[in-house]
Amino acid sequence: MFESPDRVTAALKKGGYLSDAEIATSVFVADSIGKPLLIEGPAGVGKTELAKCLAEALPARLIRLQCYEGLDESKALYEWNYRKQLLRIQADENKDWSKTEEDIFSEDYLLGRPLLDAIRSSDPVLLLIDEVDRLDLEAEALMLEVLSDWQVSIPEFGVIRAQRRPWVVLTSNATRELSEALKRRCVFLALEYPSIEREKEILMTKVPDMPEALAERVAEVVRAVRNLELKKSPSIAESIDWARSLIALGRDSLEDGEIAETLGVLLKHSVDIDKARGALTAK
């Protein structure tokens, strides 16, 4: 367990993630009261990255469940291993059926999926449930038992309780309002694009040989671009890529012309590029 929000900041920094007071406090609170952390924010603000670095900082094994529409319990929770069960039934053809039945519904025949794996694990794990807003409501309900009681009920088998409570991080792009039931069980962190100061620091940590002045300039321009109304605002990863390519091109300042040439690294829609070019450079 972390001792204070400052420790969280330090631990995350070691893993290469620059947090701010708000992030550190939320992580600290989730950690100390033992609840899942729900991170919500637009794409590309570093939600998944935070979870990964947190796993490294704890340290804990990362188990990732990528959500999508149509995810069901056989993909999220567990599945019986039909193949193995069938083989066993064939092998036991002349034996006592009730014995066989008992055996084929034992833990040996259970295929763990991420949620069950996280519960069953004896070493510390961090369960990352990514893009939980893509799930439909029924699938979201699947999570509730795991997230509040730390257990999985399997009708043929019984209840599997967590040996140790896993650290859970959920991320959401807010494409839909999550259910109150899920939100109530979580500690909430709304992640936004970083401030200029923080983005500058991120750039300087992630891009070696980055002069401070250029980092600041890049951060300023990126903020200006994010303030435009675009189809897709540049993510932190994209602004890092942009800074990298500027370094690779040997640029040490950033003026109108240079921006226009390299906008393609930052923005991926041609409409956005045109719009940004119009706003940032002389016509």
Partner: peptide, 20 residues
């Protein structure tokens, strides 16, 4: 769990638990 002396920490802790 937190020290109340730092107002911003105090505020973030409340926000994280109350505002979803």
């Amino acid at each position: 769990f937190i020290s109340w002396s730092e107002r911003s920490v105090f505020r973030s802790a409340l926000a994280a638990t109350l505002i979803k």
